[in-house]
Design a binder for these strands. Sequence first.
DNA 1: GTCTATAGCTTGATAGAC
DNA 2: GTCTATCAAGCTATAGAC
Lengths: 219, 219
Amino acid sequence: MLNKKASTQKTREKILDTAEHLFSIYGIDGTSVRNITRQAGVDLSLVNYYFNTKDQLFEEVLVRRVAKMSDARIEQLNEFNFNEDKNTAIPKILRRFIEPLIGKNENEVKELSNYRKLIALVANSKLWQDVIFKYHYDPIAEEYIDAIWRLSNNLSREDVCWAFNFFLGSLTNAIAETGRVDRLSYGDACSSDLDTMVNKIVAYSSAAILHMGNIKTTH
Amino acid sequence: MLNKKASTQKTREKILDTAEHLFSIYGIDGTSVRNITRQAGVDLSLVNYYFNTKDQLFEEVLVRRVAKMSDARIEQLNEFNFNEDKNTAIPKILRRFIEPLIGKNENEVKELSNYRKLIALVANSKLWQDVIFKYHYDPIAEEYIDAIWRLSNNLSREDVCWAFNFFLGSLTNAIAETGRVDRLSYGDACSSDLDTMVNKIVAYSSAAILHMGNIKTTH
DNA sequence: GTCTATAGCTTGATAGAC
DNA sequence: GTCTATCAAGCTATAGAC
């Protein structure tokens, strides 16, 4: 028999897990509290008991993941060796930024699967900028931008900002695992093969950052 | 006094314009038919009269733009000179792909503004892949992938697919105009300055495609 | 902490007058 | 083609029993 505290933990997390899952597929407005509780197998009123409102439930879904993510990224940065040649340092630092979003082992990769898709879904919307990105993600993004700026000696900070945003756009689209690359490649590439995806995006984005200064864009 | 046909055209397009606008901000589920008709200044029941269902209205919002977009992109490709050096050809072909989404003059840029944001919103969702991208956008994407593959002699088609998807991820995020690059650059960059954005993304993505084959990604 | 029951509102869609 | 009126269903949130 579960005691009160263990039951609370179990119900709370069942709601959070199910909410994260449905939000990541149908969006926040496309997911009703009823659908969440039905699929989680708990009573409708328990969402309001634990989280007050649907909005606060969504906030909790995010907060639950975001602290760990930021800590891991900062740790990766603190341990980073900036004396390395930039041709190898840039790929490394991008990989360090990506890894906490993917996970270190099979379990973690699976655990973060719905979270990744949810982040992808809100990344291209202006609505969630203040709620999510401004406070939770921007401070760490700024650290990485400064680090990359230090490593790439021939770019302005503004250009590094553009570059990092383009990189984030590629990344958020890739973790959405839309299956589009599968179709376009006639099955040769697989959007759910995250190991390969990470290798490809690191190569692509590093090449972009290292060489964008030398491209002529006059048309 | 307007005749019947002119009135129909006017009401239909007022609904389409308003729907496109609200969908692009709040998403499909976050926008009610009532909100659309209220803001458009037309009666609630006219949505069902002209479009039957909300889903079909959304479909019409997309279809209205997509044919022009595809035609322009194919035309750009047909006129393309493939004998040029790849270092200048790659930036050029990427620019050709982007331009129809932005518009040729101030009016077009403004007219397509909401459409761009709507596309950005659905691009990172698996839900809309079949409805929108598979049939409306993939055929043209394949043409551009093959063209880029032809130009970049040292990449596999699979790698070009990954690259083009990363490019599309950057692009869809950029046209969302989330304002994030503004914050991260402390105001030096501006996400609504599309001219600059296009120059930057062309440089970034061309560098990526031209040089990704030479990056070592071992960690 | 979990349940039933329900209030109060918004939703998409339609029937029928003009 | 446009309007009023309305339906049936779904929604978030809450009050109160256990």
